[in-house]
Design a binder for these strands. Sequence first.
DNA 1: CTGAAAGCGCTTACAG
DNA 2: CTGAAAGCGCTTACAG
Lengths: 329, 329
Amino acid sequence: MAGVSVATVSRALRGLDRVSPQTRQRVLEVAEELHYVASPTATSLVSGRTRVVAVVAPFLSRWYFATLVSAIEKELRAHDHHAILFDLEDDTYSSRLPLTQNMLWKRVDGVITLDVAMTPDEVALVDRLGLPLVAIGAPVPGRTCVRIDDHATMRTAVEHLIGLGHELIGYIGDVPEDVAHIRAPRDRLDAFVETMRAAGLDVVEEWVLGSDWTAQSAATGSTAVLSGEPRPTAVVAASDEMAIGVRETARRLGLRVPEDLSIIGIDDFVLSDVLGLSTVRQDVAAQGRTAASLVLGALGSGEPPETDDVVMPTRLVVRESTGPAPGVS
Amino acid sequence: MAGVSVATVSRALRGLDRVSPQTRQRVLEVAEELHYVASPTATSLVSGRTRVVAVVAPFLSRWYFATLVSAIEKELRAHDHHAILFDLEDDTYSSRLPLTQNMLWKRVDGVITLDVAMTPDEVALVDRLGLPLVAIGAPVPGRTCVRIDDHATMRTAVEHLIGLGHELIGYIGDVPEDVAHIRAPRDRLDAFVETMRAAGLDVVEEWVLGSDWTAQSAATGSTAVLSGEPRPTAVVAASDEMAIGVRETARRLGLRVPEDLSIIGIDDFVLSDVLGLSTVRQDVAAQGRTAASLVLGALGSGEPPETDDVVMPTRLVVRESTGPAPGVS
DNA sequence: CTGAAAGCGCTTACAG
DNA sequence: CTGAAAGCGCTTACAG
């Protein structure tokens, strides 16, 4: 319609040089009029690039993951890429769906994993396909990981309580061995234990509680300990959502927070601020953006992302749920 | 490698007939060995189908949207389709990014909108591209919408409070005119007003509060009303997240829930159960699945989805945040 | 039952 | 500066 060849149209539309201004102008006008947009599938077939990045997560509906996905999608789109989603949630909490070749092959240019512990087979698959991969949260062997320092973060939380005079401190967020695919909260539990010991405090085994990391399970799981005698004067939860569950149990049992029980979590969940929950804040969206730029960088340069982990800072946010231990002024 | 033509490979792998069992067997084995998977971009180019559905949302990180996305992704993947995400969130709450042709053209086979009020231009675009579209929440003119009956849902909530003897009832969840793109919560507010009037109760204008539908804004926004005199004995929130904000403000002001103040929301948000919040429950995941099957059905049949709305049921869930009005036994 | 050829809609050397 | 031709990796009639 513009009276030129398809090759010229291609060059004009993509802004390559070696096209006369008049021709370009004409092509642009006709394209506009016809609502012409080049077919991305045809473009992909010749370029070998899809401009799509796979975002792989064990859950999608939980706050942490949804926040990551949102941040990643925006960063990608700002650079003319798209996010395709893979929710690996399975019927049972202790297993997840595998990542397969036909999710990735010729479908995406790169992969971002959200706190998923990849199996060796999966890592081999991604390697074989030559896809750049950046992990968030749970590291993937040999790949760059954007994460927080779980150990230091937990230490900050525990030391805050110790600084307030607490000596009887419970913990919630232990996870059974078999759910290794979700996250390795070992670091957090280890840090709890170490920090307690370093301060000369006992870790009471019955006060270290398991949970599937939901508020619900934390509420149920903490009932026995909080209604027992003796009971902890403070609880540290490995996530804010669990902290909220514990806080609710405390309320039900008639324990005042923080007078009778101090509670601190990790994350700075959406509701933590309104609820006045003390926490150690991590910037989840920033982790998503960083991971997205790293894969974008790898796609641009052809080099895999630098292999060093990117460790993002966390910081203590003291709100109303923590206070001096009973008897300490 | 299997000693046959590419045409035969194509037929064998896709399970078409007119291939001898031996040949098929051989092709399958070699494919397995080579980790061969057909390139989806090449397949798309000839079929004109991408097996990808666009999921368009005004936010991604909020619970309602994340839950929908998760459900949609699973339903799509169960039928060998994929979800590509478009988060239309803009810098300001009262605007959003537009849907453009290059998000959709030859990139997706269908569209699911999550509570986005499409502009006429956007509807025209989707029409021009011939894409089946199913809306969730906010309807799109002329297209099937999966939703709840906002009016009846709100009526259920208000009548629950009235049944408990409440007469002084506040409302939170009004939205300024200019944020029309997010949701039309008009129905809910209208239903509130109508139900109150039908029961012969006054709607106190100062008790109808605006909010951006976050817990935070509800907590802040309800402070004045709850500390005023007279004050409502019950508040109905257009969403559970706002109800949680109100509940927190009540707690801070020393009002007991439900003795001094009853609170009910709508949704049955993840935390509502743990927090003991009365609500009118909607099944968000089911709406996502339904919308996904509708577009899948349209893609399979070539027919656009039936144009009647699918109205999903909601039901009252009474928990601890609502009780008899003060002075009523 | 199987293969050769055309074509899906682009981009990229290669000529001119 | 512009066009004709080849090719990306498949699928689909059409022969045989």
